[in-house]
């Protein structure tokens, strides 16, 4: 399978944020998406998932031959698209366990029945893998979780749901070095022919643990540069200024 984004334009409250995104993510690959604050990375993630606040004004997004822009967010999720949120919401009153169980049930093919005891067994194994306390699933979803704990909960969901494509929006931000390694371990464990990931990040350090196949740089709502892992080192060294001025120059030409 392939996630294909072509000429994607999107705006929020009448303000255009994405100004023509082209990006193809095949399963089996891991791509990194970098770019300065406010360049539109989270917007892209939200638009892919179908957040109702954003209006798509042009372009298309396909998962193989399925036009996902015409689908509701829950349908996209059931097709295997996953978003690890930059700021996961807290839902007091809903236990993480109940939520996860329902989400896992819905990932099964129609009529599929979740084997609860093996689901719980697997969930425990994932929690061990992520070095999470088993008690987390009895707590209300993200309520009172520390920033790092919330990110781990996102990773737990990703492992439990086994998506075809995952977009990780700054999952590495706010993590200590151990947590960072664990999160990377989580992504790497899914790596394989049935999994593609787009990792949105500001830092090289996560990419020391997860080797990206390609790196894209977004500036002002456009992908201004794509390349191999060496691009990350250049960004780390020189920042975004050289790309910004280049992008501005190109834009002026048009």
């Amino acid at each position: 399978m392939e996630l294909r984004i072509h000429g994607l334009h999107a705006s929020i409250e009448g303000k255009e944020i994405l100004k023509g995104i082209d990006l193809t993510l095949p399963q089996g690959e891991i791509h990194a998406l970098m770019g300065p604050n406010g360049s539109g990375k989270s917007t892209l993630a939200n638009v892919l998932m179908g957040h109702p606040s954003y209006e798509v004004t042009g372009g298309e997004v396909y998962m193989d031959d399925i036009d996902i822009l015409s689908l509701e967010p829950y349908q996209r999720a059931r097709l295997g698209l996953f978003l690890a949120f930059q700021y996961p919401v807290e839902i007091p009153g809903l236990t993480a366990g109940k939520f996860l169980k329902r989400a896992a049930e819905l990932r099964l093919e129609d009529g599929g029945k979740l084997n609860v005891s093996s689901f719980i067994r697997e969930l425990r194994a994932h929690m061990d893998f992520l070095e999470m306390d088993h008690q987390f699933i009895n707590r209300y979803l993200n309520e009172g979780f520390s920033g790092g704990e919330k990110k781990r909960m996102e990773m737990l969901q990703m492992l439990a749901l086994q998506p075809a494509f995952a977009v990780l929006d700054e999952t590495d931000s706010g993590l200590d070095i151990d947590a960072l390694k664990i999160v990377s371990k989580g992504v790497n464990s899914l790596k394989g022919p049935g999994f593609g990931a787009l990792i949105i990040t500001h830092y090289q350090r996560i990419l020391n643990y997860i080797r990206p196949d390609r790196v894209h740089v977004m500036v002002g709502g456009r992908i201004v540069r794509s390349g191999g892992p060496e691009l990350v080192e250049r960004l780390e060294k020189d920042g975004y200024d050289w790309l910004k001025s280049q992008a501005a120059a190109e834009h002026a030409k048009v």
Binding site: H51, P52, Y74, A77, F82, I91, F99, A103, L106
Partner: peptide, 16 residues
């Protein structure tokens, strides 16, 4: 109800 909470659930396959 908060729209971002609904969206979060939806993003995990739970219908509106």
């Amino acid at each position: 109800l908060r729209e971002d909470e609904l969206f979060y659930l939806e993003s995990r396959g739970i219908g509106r």
